[in-house]
């Protein structure tokens, strides 16, 4: 009978290596086949082995515990199903941990055993075509530039080494050297699209969706919008005016505003800072007026004015005169 040992990845944060005693003692407690690595090592070259457990030592606290998403993904990928991560883990990254497929349990991160993996058989041609159809976007005839490799070779290269070499070759085209002298193709030759486009279903709703008037609107929408704006401003003015008429002597400022409104002088909003909007009978029937614009009805006279609390003097210049 062959007994398989538990494979453990003993992972160290760079700051721990100075504390040799801690490293050795912690390692001694780990059972099974232990591989020791620095976290920076697995980032630069993710291990090809699969482990049953990752034990992470990181003597830092708080922000120093943070593990980037990319590293969490590496953790996940180098664990066997049912494997787990434990040790000095961050406590405020549960969302990131979940997003990478782990289950968080008692300060450990578990890689679940079963996935609902869609079984995709390589031989199943139908599946291949369903996968978005990896057709070339271009018409071969239009491509005049030579390829880096025979594309048939490229497609078969599972080999990491080949891929790395190819990547290296590709990267030479991205060098930062001043490309002023490079000749360019005429972008106007790229306008014949021969790829499929998605179109939305025709809008069959009421069509009440409001569109903004074009800058050079000729269809009348702009006038309509201006009319609405005028109406709203008239409503606001009426409201302010009736408030000021009801105002007691404490509200002289509002009266002053009313006078200026009558003279069609541009408002100085500094003077409007203390108007009592809470005069009895002035809240709307729907009770939403006080809640602010987000909750006000279409055509509410308060639209455009700040939210206020019943029973409170509100301030119009929450953000000063200028916005």
């Amino acid at each position: 009978m062959v007994v398989q040992e538990v494979k453990v990845l003993y992972l160290l944060h760079p700051t721990v290596v100075t504390d040799e005693k801690l490293v050795v003692e912690t390692k001694a407690k780990l059972l099974g086949d232990v591989t020791q690595m620095l976290i920076s090592q697995i980032v630069s070259k993710p291990p090809s082995d699969k482990f049953d457990k990752i034990f992470y030592v990181n003597p830092n606290e708080g922000e120093g515990r943070y593990i980037p998403n990319e590293v969490l993904e590496i953790f996940f990928n180098c664990l066997n199903e049912g494997g787990e991560v434990e040790g000095d883990l961050p406590t405020d990254q549960d969302i990131d941990v979940l997003m990478n497929g782990f289950v968080v349990e008692n300060n450990k991160w578990l890689k679940p055993k079963k996935f609902n993996v869609i079984s995709l058989k390589k031989s199943n041609k139908e599946t291949v075509s369903k996968l978005g159809g990896f057709k070339r976007l271009n018409d071969e005839k239009t491509v005049k530039s030579p390829g880096l490799t025979d594309s048939s070779i490229a497609s078969e290269s599972e080999d990491e080494n080949n891929k790395r070499k190819l990547d290296k070759m590709k990267l030479t085209y991205f060098s930062d050297s001043d490309g002023e002298s490079d000749s360019e193709i005429d972008e106007n030759e790229l306008l014949e699209s021969n790829y499929t486009l998605i179109k939305p279903k025709k809008c069959d709703t009421t069509g009440k969706k409001r569109r903004k008037a074009c800058k050079d609107c000729t269809c009348g929408l702009k006038e309509l919008e201006e009319q609405e704006l005028n109406n709203q401003q008239t409503l606001q003015s009426k409201l302010l005016s009736s408030l000021s008429q009801q105002a007691t002597s404490a509200n002289r400022e509002a009266i002053a505003i009313e006078e200026r409104l009558a003279n069609k002088v541009k408002l100085d909003f500094k003077d409007m800072s203390e108007i009592d909007f809470t005069i009895k009978g002035k809240t709307g029937g729907c009770n939403s007026c006080s809640l602010g614009d987000a909750f006000r009805c279409d055509g509410c006279p308060y639209l455009g004015l700040p939210a206020f609390k019943p029973g409170e003097v509100i301030s119009l210049d929450n953000f000063g005169e200028d916005i």
Partner: peptide, 13 residues
């Protein structure tokens, strides 16, 4: 845009 328009770029880049 200027980069991708370069003529010298290979077709399997």
């Amino acid at each position: 845009m200027k980069f991708i328009l370069k003529k010298k770029l290979p077709s399997d880049l």
